[in-house]
Design a protein around this nucleic acid. Structure first.
Length: 824
RNA sequence: GCCGAUGUGGCGGAACUGGCAGACGCACGGGACUUAAAAUCCCGCGAGCCCAAAGCUCGUACCGGUUCGAUUCCGGUCAUCGGCACCA
């Protein structure tokens, strides 16, 4: 009776052996090419979920494959350990957030280890460890030193439920991306990172990332939102000030019939002061303040506005136009003021129709007759066309007029070309405890003073009170009260902590030198390992994490700490793990726990299924039966080795003379080597790689029953199966490799080389078509010439019958594949 | 509204450069083994015409085009998903 596949025993055995041996530890290497494989590090929520399993299985296959190909592979893991859930748990349990976090890390670490992933555990890091966040603070200070951090009072996004501010990127559909509470606006003094200084570079360098999915690059482009336009001054009639507007359609400037300011625009109150309009204006402003962000900025909200009693002058036409305020103009974008061109802008059109403002046409559609009356317009015309009613610019094409009018404004010093971005500066302050404290001190005499580098880290205090709705750091007297590093007087510490995205924007750099006590990373190490050759994670980070990381990398490069322009060479965004058509989530109750699957079938089965069920970038539908199928496959592999083991152990070194069946078996082995190498190494289609191995197993099951099956060929095939399968199912293959009498470990082998000669076939099947429709098939020698083949095909009775009475127009022959006879 | 992606059997998916549509797996059906069941092994499995076979016809969301030949290329339509959305 043959031995059973005891996955639990085998997996525990090899995990211990690998752990003791430090099997995946790496250091810089003088000659081997390096490869940096990275999965987005997890938040220590407490338990691994299937999304993690998928993410880490994908990267592990890549890492193991690259190792076998001779690369020096860095494959690290760590914990994105700061954040709100720990703090909420602290409030609930009245225990410190660190306690919750570290015990979660411990638990998830053992779950991760049960998956048999080839991490270099020596490099493990956690962002909540003082040895790490010390350098998060260090980076903050570097940015401060270089003028890329500033503090300003602004109307910021506030999540009432999380009681903290949020970055623009963390507001999704007007709600908090974490808890989905509707975000409000609050005027607060906050710390910002000047990501907008890098807007142009962040946009332009997307071109340097051919290894990124187009989808992610498009999302970043949209988020950065570059637009080319003109700023122009409309002089306010009877006053000294001007209103500066921003427009991308300077060519429509002769069609301006009003100018609109955002209600919050600083000029508004001044312009209304003491006029008959003042009361109305003030109450309109109040009304706008009361609206939440979603209704305020939604395109569906009806446009609403108010004339404020003043006029200004069109800088090009000289015309007087009324000044309005309206809800659809945003203070934060451009100059907070726009010109209204109802005939050529959809929004202005809607607004003008509501308030009976005129809409003169200044650009004619190419096919539109000049007779069309302005008031009969049914919609704004926003495309290019012929300039009319535009003074000296009449008759020009609108695109040419754009440049001429911009020139005219610049010459008269009434305006200038301006590039605008939708991207705003990154708000990094958080009114929370469980994050890296912002290393700044407020002194009554010296002002805002950075904490000196040698005083880092600014440690999180323990003497705090956790209460909902309050920043816990403000309750720690020992933390708040400090001395000024400049003058030594009593001073107050900054009590805000940093956005956790700050911590996760540089962790991939720390892995290259994780225990450095003096610097976030040493130059030679970071230069050796960076950049990340393959990064894998969920598409939900397309903007937040991936944009911030690119920014931090570029800035650190400019400070002289890095040589790279971009952190992540290749990016793979994996799909979600779904069940019953929707993403597995606790709230939907459709979760399958990795722990349960691993205990029932083993880690190898779990890994294999999650890689086999779908290509990595697509969503994956969970199937319990599919898991069982993969388990069956591994059992089949196990039995195959045990059934052929005796023959293999006694096989001679050389196969000798091969018969047809042996040659065909050998061919199939090398077809599989070719396919798996390409699918894993080039295409990242792990599902088809696994299919190819399954096919090879099916083939050898038949071959081993053939009389006189060659033991040497059996050995080559079975060993190839194990090696090809090793990156996917590391434990079972390691065990079976040992059982076949090999020492030294399957994962230390070199990836099998392809024997091109073995792929050659003596005979091939040729498809015979008439007018493109398949009529027959023909076995021919593989090396048959085109003419001989065509002659043979024409002579076939079936082909003769089908072409009888018709004229053969031409014959198309694809050697080794098909012959198509075109008849009339 | 704009941008991007996707659409193939009962299901997950394959077909890499325009050349045998449906590999591989799941489910299902049949058979072998077994006292029996499980496990395992073998065979079948897009639809229609047909008792069946041989054979023929249709078939990759829909309509059309290019081509000897289209799941693949081009134009249009529809549907689903994702991102952005009063950004001037």
């Amino acid at each position: 009776m043959e031995e059973q596949y005891q996955f639990a025993h085998i997996e525990a055995k090899w995990q211990e052996i690998w752990r003791v041996a430090g099997a995946s530890q790496v250091a810089e290497h003088a000659t081997k090419p390096k490869f940096y494989a990275l999965a987005m590090f997890p938040y220590p929520s407490g338990n691994l979920h299937m999304g993690h399993v998928r993410n880490y299985s994908i990267v592990d296959v890549i890492a193991r494959f690259k190792r076998m190909q001779g690369y020096n592979v860095l494959h690290p893991i760590g914990w994105d350990a700061f954040g709100l859930p720990a703090e909420n748990a602290a409030i609930k349990n009245q225990r410190p957030p660190g306690e919750w976090t570290w015990s979660n890390i411990e638990n998830m670490k053992s779950q991760l280890q049960s998956m048999g992933i080839s991490y270099d555990w020596q490099r493990e890091l956690a962002t909540c460890h003082p040895g790490y966040y010390r350098f998060t603070q260090w980076i903050f200070l570097e940015f401060y030193r270089h003028g890329l951090v500033y503090k300003k009072k602004a109307a910021v996004n506030w999540c009432p439920s999380c009681s903290t501010v949020l970055a623009n990127e963390q507001v999704v559909d007007g709600a908090c991306e974490r808890c989905e509470t509707v975000v409000t606006k609050k005027d607060l003094e906050q710390w910002f990172f000047k990501i907008t200084d890098y807007a142009e570079a962040l946009l332009a360098d997307l071109e340097k990332l051919p290894g990124w999915p187009e989808k992610v690059k498009t999302m970043q482009r949209n988020w950065i939102g570059r637009s080319e336009g003109v700023e122009a001054d409309f002089h306010i009639t009877g006053r000294s000030e001007s209103i500066r507007i921003y427009t991308t359609r300077v060519d429509t400037m002769f069609g301006v019939t009003y100018v609109v300011l955002a209600p919050e625009h600083p000029l508004v109150r001044a312009l209304a002061r003491g006029t008959a309009y003042e009361d109305q204006v003030l109450s309109f402003i109040e009304k706008m303040k009361g609206l939440n962000e979603i209704t305020r900025t939604s395109a569906e909200t009806e446009k609403e506005g108010l004339f404020i009693g003043q006029y200004c002058q069109n800088p090009l036409s000289g015309e007087q136009v009324p000044i309005w305020i309206a809800n659809y103009v945003l203070l934060e974008y451009g100059t907070g003021a726009v010109m209204g061109v109802p005939a050529h802008d959809e929004r202005d059109f809607e607004f003008a129709r509501k308030y009976a403002l005129p809409f003169p046409t200044v650009i004619l559609a190419p096919d539109k007759p000049l007779t069309a009356k302005d008031q009969e317009l049914e919609a704004a015309y926003s495309a290019r066309g012929l300039m009319v009613n535009s003074g000296e610019f009449d008759g020009l094409d609108s695109e040419e007029a754009w440049d001429r009018m911009a020139d005219a404004l610049e010459q008269r010093s009434l305006g200038m070309r301006k590039v605008n971005f939708r991207l705003r500066d990154w708000l990094i302050s958080r009114q929370r405890y469980w994050g890296a404290p912002i290393p700044m001190i407020y002194c009554a005499t010296c002002g805002t003073v950075p904490v000196p580098e040698d005083q880092l880290p600014v440690l999180l205090p323990d003497d705090i009170v956790f209460k909902a709705g309050e920043n816990p750091l403000t309750t720690s007297a020992s933390f708040v009260q400090t001395v000024c590093p400049v003058c030594g007087a009593a001073a107050r510490r900054e009590t805000d902590t940093m956005d956790t995205f700050m911590c996760s924007s540089w962790y991939y750099l720390r892995y290259t030198d994780p225990r450095n006590q003096d610097l976030p990373f040493a130059k030679d190490q970071v230069d050796y390992w960076m950049n990340v050759d393959q990064y894998v994670g969920g598409v939900e980070h397309a903007i937040l994490h991936l944009l911030y990381s690119r920014f931090i990398t570029k800035a650190l490069r400019d400070f002289g700490y890095l040589q790279i322009d971009e952190p992540f060479e290749n990016l793979l965004t994996q799909g979600m793990v779904c069940m019953d058509g929707s993403k597995m989530s606790k709230s939907k109750g459709n979760v399958v726990s990795p722990e349960e699957i691993i205990s029932r079938f083993g880690a190898d089965t779990a890994r294999l299924f999650i890689l086999f069920a779908a290509p990595p970038e697509k969503d994956l539908e969970w199937s319990d039966q599919g898991v069982e199928g993969c388990f069956r496959f591994l059992n089949r592999t196990w039995r195959l080795v045990h059934q052929t083991r005796e023959a293999i152990l006694h096989a001679g070194e050389t196969p000798g003379q091969l018969d047809d069946a042996a040659r065909e078996m050998r061919r199939q082995t090398h077809v599989a080597i070719q396919r798996v190498s390409n699918d894993v190494g080039v295409r990242f289609n792990f599902n088809t790689a696994i299919s190819a191995i399954m096919e090879l197993i099916n083939a050898v099951y038949h071959y081993k029953e053939v009389p006189d099956a060659s033991p040497a060929i059996l050995r080559e095939t079975v060993e190839a199966i194990l090696i090809l399968l090793a990156p996917f199912a590391p434990h079972i293959t390691e065990e079976l490799w040992e059982q076949l009498g090999h020492a030294g470990g399957i994962h230390n082998l070199t990836w099998p080389a392809l024997d091109e000669d073995a792929l050659k076939q003596d005979e091939v099947t040729i498809v015979l078509q008439i007018n493109g429709k398949i009529r027959d098939r023909l076995q021919t020698p593989a090396d048959m010439g085109v003419e001989a083949l065509e002659a043979q095909v024409r002579a076939l009775p079936k082909i003769q019958e089908l072409t009888q009475g018709k004229t053969i127009v031409k014959v198309i022959t694809v050697p080794g594949k098909l012959v198509n006879i075109v008849v009339k």
